[in-house]
């Protein structure tokens, strides 16, 4: 994490663009107002920031790399669920917010080299994996095949469609999109798939024994995905998921994110599946 003398105090950033992705999902593109801070800030795919809204408070949000690959810019895609995210939905270009970060563990980009990479996401779980996908595409020759699987409840919830189209047209890359309800954008306009992400397992054309899976979505979905890919031949230690718990501090002090002995904010949020498989089985841990 970027910090001078106090890990609790945020740094000022400016909203350079506000993008409404869907009626309750938006993206803010940000830059640090102090160039000295900007030059020290860098994140690894999978890490998150604490974003502070003036007078309201802080929330943990995954970091998305800039869509224009512009240096000194990064993005956050946020779903409106409660007090703070509701307030953030009213931000506009030029507004200032606070940032502390980056925090947490990252996707295994090194371990994935030389392997086929399978990205599996559900709902807004795609945001934390955009940076990892771009990282593979940027260093294309170092990785095997890339498969991006995304599941949404209803077809109108699709965000980042341009990005998916670009990825789908990239070398050795294929995007698989599934929805359990295509109706909202149907009338022949929904060109992506139907059903659940795991339905695609037989047709991915990858070497499962030499694949790495990175998955984010609701917890039951991640557990289901992990089990299905392990059954298909992926080594359990090559399946990674990212957990969500209540986070107030992100620095291992507030105790809220505990899961057994884990502080999800610093020992996670990205975990190899075997490291949290047993913990996730215990109700109320």
């Amino acid at each position: 994490m970027l910090y001078t003398n106090d890990a609790y105090t945020p740094f000022e950033v400016e909203v350079v663009e506000f993008i409404q992705e869907h009626h309750d999902i938006f993206t803010i593109r940000l830059k640090f107002t102090d160039p000295a801070i900007d030059s020290k800030y860098f994140f690894r795919p999978g890490q998150f920031n604490m974003i502070y809204l003036y007078g309201v408070g802080e929330v943990a949000i995954s970091i998305v790399n800039d869509r224009n690959h512009q240096p000194g810019r990064f993005e956050h895609t946020i779903q409106v669920v409660g007090r703070i995210t509701k307030g953030m939905a009213k931000l506009k270009a030029g507004d200032k917010v606070g940032i502390r970060g980056p925090f947490g563990t990252a996707w295994p980009m090194e371990e994935a080299k030389g392997k086929d990479v399978i990205i599996v996401t559900g709902g807004l779980g795609n945001a934390p994996l955009v940076a990892a996908t771009e990282e593979v595409l940027k260093n294309r020759k170092q990785y095997g095949k890339l498969r991006v699987l995304h599941g949404i409840r209803t077809s109108d919830l699709l965000i980042y469609e341009d990005m998916y189209t670009r990825w789908n047209n990239s070398p050795e890359t294929k995007v698989y999109m599934a929805t359990s309800n295509a109706e909202p954008v149907d009338n022949g306009k929904w060109t992506w798939g139907k059903g659940f992400v795991t339905n695609f397992i037989p047709e991915l054309g990858v070497d499962y024994a030499n694949s790495i899976v990175m998955c984010v979505g609701p917890e039951p979905m991640m557990i289901g995905v992990a089990k299905s890919f392990i059954a298909a031949g992926v080594k359990p230690e090559n399946v990674y998921i990212s957990l969500e718990r209540s986070m107030k501090c992100a620095i291992g002090h507030c105790g809220h994110c505990q899961l057994g002995a884990q502080f999800v904010c610093k020992d996670g949020a990205v975990y190899p599946y075997p490291a949290c498989e047993e913990l996730l089985k215990v109700k109320g841990l």
């Binding site: 106090d6 105090t9 945020p10 000022e12 030029g94």
Partner: peptide, 19 residues
Amino acid sequence: NVWKVARNDEGKLAFEPIV
């Protein structure tokens, strides 16, 4: 209080740790 932040008319935020 662990820190405070002042906001001016332009919305600029000045963060300051309280120690």
